[in-house]
Structure formats: structure tokens, C-alpha cells
């Protein structure tokens, strides 16, 4: 069993968030079943008052979940490695957890944040209008979240309980174990760097253009939103792969060090935080941009507000993408200018 004060903080935040979610679930269930906005009877008015309470509880749970997720990433990348023999970065910590445990933990945490972000945006939209027209939909969405929160909490405990603090790990050596030949190291999924760089450039241009189009468009463009969602879904894994396999070499100044976690280390100026933070923002805002108008299409007023939110989401995606591009690519350009060649030749 691995134990650390930061882990206690993470689990405590998750437990409090879960309690808040569970406390709001009963009201959300009643709201989902009995919501009748045209009636002004005592049950409906009581539901309206309690729905306001659930909104406050949900917002508190959302920020607690964000807080615990940030602590989790900070702990994995910069703190827990000190207590695990052989671990130097997050790779060692994840290795100590077991690869399946760490993957599940990150997936559940991401899924929880994704759902809570969507609920949070729906709730904000709902509270903008006096009639609160999205209350029943937000209540239904709210009911899904505690199940994911339970899984996240359980997985957090299971992952860290599985760590044996006296058993050394190989850390980044596992990154090199993935490759048997140099040719293998210079390709991703059997395709060479040139293909992935080309794909990254094309998708980046497409995402940037679509985001700008959505940001500046004064009319509803559901087709562009759909295309934006598809491009986002393609851009995110391609950007992650090119970052880890190609651009990270210029940050590490070592050829073929394909470790995603070392970017978070102070030796590499903590660039992992803004880089993965930008990916997180693009993922969350892209999801919001695609889903929000679909869920808020019952009422024309709320739909217009949703479109305004989509424009803001497109704006944030543009800035996050620019931030990502600058931080990811700038060292490569500096290297090229300084040495006259790319690192890969």
C-alpha cells in the first residue's frame, strides 16, 4: 500500500465531491420524473427550490473534482515518484500502479471531468434564463455523474493500493523497451514521421480555420460544428502522438525519448502543464461546442445562448491551439535555426 498526504487530499476531495453528488441525486431523480414547469403546485415549487440547491451542490462537486484531478496529475508527475524506488517521472508511478490501473484511473478521471464540464455548462445556461428551461435535462445528466464518480474514487484507491513502495520500477526504460529497432522507434503505428507531421499540419490548419469560422459566424452552422467535432477528435490523438514522438525530442534534447510524463518535470521547464492543459481545454471545449446546442435545442432563447457559448468555446480552442503550437514547435524551430538541421536529420 502506498500512502502520501497528497493522496489523502485527492481522495478526500473525491469523497466530498461524491457525497455532494449523491446528496443531489435524489432531488435530480425527482426532478427527472416529476418536473412540470407549467404547474405551480407545491410539489413543483418544492422541486424548483431544491433544484437550485442541487445546482450549488453540483458546482461545488465540479470544482472539487477539477481540484482533485489537478492534484492527481501533479502528484503523479512531480510528487509520488520520490517515494517509489527507480521512478523519476509519472511513467514510473504509473508503472508501479500497473499499466491497466493507471490507464483506467486516467480514463475515469477524464470521463468524470468531461461529464461534469458538460453538466456545468448546461447548468450555467439554465441559470441564465428565469424559466430555467433545461432543469429536467440537467437533472438527467446529473444522475449519470455519481456512477462515474464512484468508479473514479474506487479506481484511485485501487491504483494506489496496488503500489508496493519497496519494489523498484524501470521508469522510462519501458519507453525504450517498446522498440526493437531504430526504424521502429522512428515510426508511429508503422507510419513515418513525415506522415504524422503532414497530418498534424493539415489537421491543425483545419481545426484553426473551423474554430475561427465558428467564432466569427453570426448564424447557426450545425454542419461546421459537426465537422469541427470530427477534426477535434482526429487532431487530439495526432497532436498527442506527434508531441510525444516527435516534438518532445526538442524539449528533451534527446533523440527518441518518447516519455509523455517527463515533460512535466522541472528540468524541462514544466512544459507538460501548458501543453497537456491546452489539449485538455481543446478536448473539453470541443465536446461542449458539439454537445451543448444538441442538448439545448428545446427553446429558441436558450439555443441562442448556447450558440453564444459555442462562439466562446471556439475562441478558447483557437487560443489553446496557438498556445500548444507555440510551446510544442518553438524549440524545434530554435534547434533548426541554431544547428541548421532537424534533429531527425
Amino acid at each position: 500500500m502506498f500512502w502520501h498526504p497528497l493522496l489523502l487530499a485527492i481522495i478526500s476531495a473525491q469523497i466530498v465531491a461524491l457525497l455532494l453528488l449523491l446528496a443531489g441525486s435524489l432531488t435530480s431523480l425527482n426532478t427527472a420524473l416529476h418536473w412540470q414547469p407549467l404547474s405551480a403546485d407545491s410539489r413543483q415549487l418544492s422541486l424548483e427550490a431544491r433544484a437550485e440547491g442541487v445546482s450549488i451542490q453540483g458546482r461545488a462537486a465540479f470544482w472539487l473534482s477539477v481540484f482533485s484531478a489537478v492534484l492527481l496529475v501533479f502528484g503523479i508527475t512531480n510528487i509520488f515518484a520520490e517515494d517509489i524506488p527507480g521512478a523519476m517521472c509519472g511513467t514510473g508511478v504509473c508503472q508501479a500502479m500497473s499499466p491497466r490501473g493507471s490507464t483506467q484511473l486516467l480514463l475515469y478521471t477524464g470521463l468524470l471531468l468531461l461529464l461534469m464540464q458538460l453538466w456545468h455548462e448546461m447548468d450555467k445556461l439554465n441559470r441564465m434564463l428565469v424559466e430555467m428551461p433545461l432543469t429536467d435535462i440537467t437533472a438527467r445528466l446529473f444522475l449519470v455523474i455519481p456512477a462515474v464518480a464512484v468508479l473514479t474514487l474506487k479506481q484511485t484507491y485501487a491504483s494506489f493500493a496496488g503500489i508496493r513502495p519497496h519494489q523498484p520500477v524501470d521508469c522510462c526504460a519501458v519507453v525504450y523497451d517498446q522498440f526493437t529497432t531504430l526504424k521502429h522507434a522512428k515510426s508511429i503505428l508503422g507510419l513515418g514521421d513525415a506522415f504524422w507531421i503532414s497530418a498534424f499540419i493539415v489537421l491543425s490548419l483545419a481545426l484553426f480555420s473551423l474554430s475561427v469560422a465558428l467564432r466569427t459566424s453570426m448564424v447557426d452552422r450545425p454542419g461546421i460544428r459537426g465537422l469541427h467535432a470530427i477534426i477535434s477528435c482526429l487532431w487530439l490523438p495526432v497532436a498527442s502522438l506527434t508531441l510525444v514522438n516527435i516534438f518532445s525530442a526538442y524539449h528533451y534534447e534527446v533523440l527518441h525519448h518518447h516519455c509523455p510524463w517527463c515533460l512535466f518535470l522541472p528540468e524541462h521547464r514544466l512544459v507538460g502543464y501548458p501543453l497537456y492543459g491546452a489539449l485538455y481545454v481543446i478536448g473539453m471545449e470541443g465536446f461542449t461546442l458539439f454537445m451543448l446546442p444538441r442538448l439545448a435545442n428545446q427553446d429558441i432563447t436558450v439555443y441562442k445562448k448556447a450558440l453564444d457559448r459555442c462562439r466562446r468555446a471556439a475562441n478558447r480552442i483557437t487560443f489553446a491551439q496557438l498556445l500548444f503550437l507555440i510551446i510544442a514547435i518553438l524549440p524545434a524551430i530554435v534547434w533548426r535555426l541554431h544547428y541548421g538541421v532537424w534533429m531527425s536529420g
Partner: peptide, 22 residues
């Protein structure tokens, strides 16, 4: 305070049912 049932209507708006900020 909130009514137990019914509503207070001002200029065709049920103000007694408005939420927090409103």
C-alpha cells in the same frame, strides 16, 4: 420568501419562481 404553491406575477413574469440571481 418562496410560496408553498401558486405564484406572484409581475408584468406577466412569475417572479416568485425566479431562481437566485434573477
Amino acid at each position: 420568501t418562496r410560496p408553498t404553491s401558486g405564484e406572484v406575477v409581475v408584468n406577466d413574469q412569475a417572479v416568485s419562481r425566479w431562481s437566485g440571481a434573477h
